[in-house]
Design a binder for these strands. Structure first.
Lengths: 117, 117
DNA sequence: CCCGATCGTTACGGGTCCGTATCATTAGCC
DNA sequence: GGCTAATGATACGGACCCGTAACGATCGGG
């Protein structure tokens, strides 16, 4: 039961949601940061810097910096792993979950408004 | 004939497409840049700095800088308006059109892979 | 114990972007 | 011509991000 969508619809949806994000004055997340955020909130824990770097195909400092920024925004938090103290476990936050939920609603609503074609 | 999509589908689609963009090593466009690019390629010309700034709800320097960056990437180009030489007309490019088309195909394909739920 | 391997972080030099304020150029009108 | 209004570009100080390289902390096996 695949999701049917035409190229022109896809582009209009993509544009409209990005317009909404910009106009809402939300944090202007890059593609990398968005991918990291959604991976944390959609994939099963635990999440580590190493694992995220591998999934995204980027270096570890990229993840560290993104977590720094999103941490300041309250979207994620970090905690040392007590079983292997070299690891850092990335945790979800209430604010992050809310932001993700709002994004989902935004996409759903804008999709609903997309006429056929 | 609205486009039906569930919140969980929307999030998975959003994540997967962003993952693809990151992994393809493409230019890591911000939400603002994406909104600008798609507006130029989806809305009817002519496009001006002023008009784009108004549509996005941002200041003019934001548009100027974004056009600088995308110009270097070959995604857009600028030309002075011969009828009113204060204006700058933003033009599409072959590379830009290709990039937009690739994005559309990416979204369509990833949507097709989204199972129900 | 110690030493190599692995973890996440930090340092560095360079680039981009931000918002505000200012600028040069052009248009339009008297 | 001179004035105002409008356009897009630029200057500024500050913040963020990049990739590479190095770092301290920790684990685990000999």
């Amino acid at each position: 039961m695949p999701l049917e969508i035409k190229p022109s619809q896809a582009l209009r949806l993509w544009r409209q949601v990005h317009l909404d994000l910009v106009r809402d004055g939300q944090a202007d997340l890059s593609a990398r940061q968005t991918a990291i955020l959604l991976t944390i909130y959609l994939e099963l824990p635990p999440h580590t810097v190493r694992g995220l770097a591998a999934q995204l195909g980027v270096t570890k400092p990229v993840i560290t910096r993104a977590l720094d920024t999103m941490g300041k925004l309250g979207l994620v938090s970090r905690k040392r792993d007590d079983f292997d103290r070299r690891n850092v476990v990335i945790q979800r936050t209430v604010a992050g979950a809310l932001a993700v939920e709002r994004l989902a609603d935004l996409v759903v609503e804008r999709a609903r408004e997309m006429g056929g074609g």
